[in-house]
Computed example of a mutant assay.
Amino acid sequence: MNLNDFFLFRYGAEILQHTGEHLLLVVTAIGIATLVGIPLGILITRKASLRQPILGVANILQTIPSLALFGLLLPVPIIGGIGAVPAIVALTLYSLLPIIRNTYTGITGIDPAIKEAGRGMGMTDRQMLLQVEIPLALSVILAGVRLATVIAIGIATIAAAIGAGGLGVFIFRGISVVNNQLLLAGAVPAAFLAIFAELAIGWLERLLTPSGISKGYK
């Protein structure tokens, strides 16, 4: 087999370009989802009445087919249209559920005796949150971020359908011309990105787990 026929050699420059686009979409979406999801997860530990509505909306967003969600965003002003912006919005919405749920699970799963000890020392709710709850729940929260990242990497391949770029460009081109090399040029790097994200965030999660025990929805 001629090396020039191998997809890594034939499409190497394009793979690097589209991998960069893919990473930009995922990192931006996960960053926004983390900034929104963690506070929402904390909120529902304090306001029990908001738990079902917030988790319910996040669950509904997860059930919408990805291509349909991208399509629904097209006519929306400001965040809609063609390109990276609606793709980032869609990926952010898909990433919220695991982050919100794991934040809630991590904080509510802390031993009540530890919380009572903190209150007995006169700690305010803010001090309890920042000095006790978040540090103890951090590994569980990161498990949610890890899951959200892996999901986002997969869904981001669909973003090429609305002109957002990424590795999905190869997949759609490969399907249109029935070319397996093009399909592999998109699918293989996306799979490696997902594996790398899983290992990297998983390592960070284990590093931040004092007891070495992971909890939560993974």
Rank of each mutant, 00 (worst) to 15 (best):
R10C: 00
T124H: 08
H22S: 03
L138F: 15
G37Q: 06
L50R: 05
Q52L: 07
L23V: 14
L199A: 13
H18W: 15
P86W: 11
I42E: 03
G37C: 06
V145F: 08
I162P: 02
I54T: 05
Q127A: 14
R206P: 01
K115N: 10
E116S: 02
G168C: 05
I195Q: 08
R119D: 04
R146C: 09
V178Q: 11
G106I: 03
L40T: 12
T63I: 14
F9D: 00
Y11C: 01
A161C: 00
M128G: 10
T28N: 01
V26T: 12
I32W: 05
N4E: 14
L25D: 06
G41S: 02
L73R: 05
G37S: 10
V36I: 15
L96I: 11
L72I: 15
N102G: 08
I151H: 10
T157P: 03
K47H: 13
A190M: 10
G212C: 04
L129N: 04
H18D: 01
I107R: 00
W203I: 13
E21P: 03
L97E: 08
F70D: 01
V178A: 12
K215T: 12
A68L: 13
Q131C: 00
Y217T: 13
G122Y: 04
R10G: 00
Q52T: 10
A190C: 09
I15S: 02
